[in-house]
């Protein structure tokens, strides 16, 4: 009887520990460094793969989704969402009219930021994956050069209540040109 009880307990423990391991990665928060790195990597990926690379960006389980973040792609000139791993309903649809809960035209602002060579960061409110409520989101946006296009805009963000846009811009500058920022 004791043996049977221990066995059930062991099954329950292993079940719950397994669940803990399989818990959504969204519990972990993406960092700004990761957002910048992922956007730049996606930019290089699209340079090599052309339009055929969009399928990879649309994949929910692909390399462009991690922790609680993801890379999404849009076309400012043609006012279209090109790829979005968590909102497939937005793909192919106009984006310029999209606002956050505060009425900010997110994509109009992102397109302005993406026109600068190093891109930029935008602050707005957005639903965090798995959280079911809106949070302060800071998104890095950058333009990728891609064949047969004037450029596709790529973005990825972090959910954070404290980070300032100034600090994020400094971080971007540092990552773009590390030689200018010696470690010591």
């Amino acid at each position: 009887m004791l043996q049977r009880r221990n066995c059930i307990l062991a099954v329950l423990v292993s079940l719950f520990s397994g669940l803990a391991c399989a818990a959504p990665a969204a519990d972990e928060a993406a960092t700004p460094e990761e957002s910048i790195t992922k956007v730049w990597a996606a930019s290089k990926f699209l340079q090599d793969k052309g339009a055929s690379g969009f399928a990879s960006l649309n994949s929910q389980d692909g390399i462009w989704t991690w922790k609680d973040s993801y890379v999404f792609a849009f076309d400012c000139r043609f006012d279209r969402m090109v790829a979005h791993p968590t909102r497939p309903d937005l793909v192919g649809r106009p984006i310029m009219q999209i606002t956050d809960n505060n009425g900010k035209y997110i994509f109009k602002e992102m397109c302005k930021l993406a026109s600068s060579p190093r891109g930029g960061w935008l602050e707005y409110v957005w639903t965090r994956p798995g959280a079911g409520r809106v949070s302060r989101k800071l998104t890095y946006v950058h333009t990728a050069e891609i064949a047969f296009s004037n450029g596709i805009q790529l973005a990825a963000g972090v959910y954070d209540e404290k980070l300032s846009l100034e600090d994020l811009d400094k971080l971007t500058a540092k990552m773009a040109d590390p030689a200018k920022y010696p470690a010591h």
């Binding site: 090599d48 793969k49 052309g50 339009a51 064949a147 047969f148």
Partner: peptide, 18 residues
């Protein structure tokens, strides 16, 4: 054909290639 190739991942051309 290059446009189609880029869409279907056949002999993909980069912007520099174009």
């Amino acid at each position: 054909l290059m446009l189609l190739g880029n869409h279907f991942n056949i002999y993909v051309s980069s912007k520099t290639d174009i």
